[in-house]
Simulated assay, not measured.
Amino acid sequence: MPETITLLNLLDDAAMLSLEHQLHLLELVGDHSWNVDMNQQRFDFVGPRATTCTGFQLLGTAAPGPRSWLWAWANPSGFPESLIAASAALRDFGEQHGIAELASAEVPFDALPGSPAEPVAAVGLLMDAAKAVTGRWTSYNGDAGGGTRAAFLIEHPDFRLPPPNPPRTMRVIMQALTDTWVTDHRRALHSYGLRRQLNPVFSPDFAKLTLSGPGFEAVVEFDQYGRVADIDASMSQHDA
């Protein structure tokens, strides 16, 4: 039978690669402000390294008053269809797979994993789910005023990740396990390994996962609950 896809699956699939892209984005744009013109379909970072995105999508907004997320396709403001195509595709994906959080026009914060109290946290969850579905991995969580946050998927050649770097890879793994919403450690690490071409291989009993790349190998051990119990990583002197 085909796998039943859930919102938690999508969050596990996205957690580590999403985090790595966001770290890369922050390094690129540094201390910045941002501007978006929906009519001109222009998204800019303003600061020491000014960047005009080559493309972007509005996913939706999270507001503190109603404590809910509103998908861009359902927003009564009537944004250009070309800028909300990703949100519409996520609606269709949600309907196909029975994921109410993607298919419903408005999603209460309490319906999301962990019942986030703040808009910024709700946005982070739904942006990660969107990345796992669309394959677009760089996002921006912007202050839209009045405590409301707006979520975008953004594109630019500079946003693409460089080849895996062993110290960065370990930082991403450890930070994601600590700071992001990961419920299935095995799935999250295997998904990250596949997407970063780290040759993920489970042991026959699924108690260990080996990740490997140039100058790097890590053997991840899982406890009886499927959580990461230990990571034994080795790096060549050249790459360490």
Rank of each mutant, 00 (worst) to 15 (best):
A103Y: 00
M127W: 02
A121L: 13
L112Q: 11
R91L: 05
V29K: 03
F45M: 07
K131M: 15
D158I: 10
M38F: 13
F222R: 03
A74K: 04
M170R: 05
P164G: 09
V36Y: 04
G47V: 03
E217F: 05
D128N: 15
L8N: 14
G65Q: 09
P204M: 04
P119I: 02
L211V: 09
D44W: 03
A14P: 10
A151P: 08
A132F: 00
R196Y: 02
A88F: 01
Q22W: 03
H32W: 00
E221C: 03
R91I: 01
L211W: 01
C53T: 04
Q22F: 00
L58K: 01
S191F: 02
L198I: 12
G47S: 08
N9S: 10
L58P: 04
P167S: 08
W69G: 04
G114W: 00
A207N: 09
D223S: 03
F216I: 07
L25S: 07
N9H: 13
P162H: 10
I99N: 03
L83K: 01
P204R: 13
Y225D: 13
I99L: 03
P164D: 06
W137L: 11
A122N: 12
P66D: 07
R136L: 14
D205T: 08
F206L: 09
V201S: 11
A100I: 00
A150G: 06
V228N: 09
T61R: 08
L8D: 15
P167W: 02
A218F: 02
E217G: 13
G145E: 06
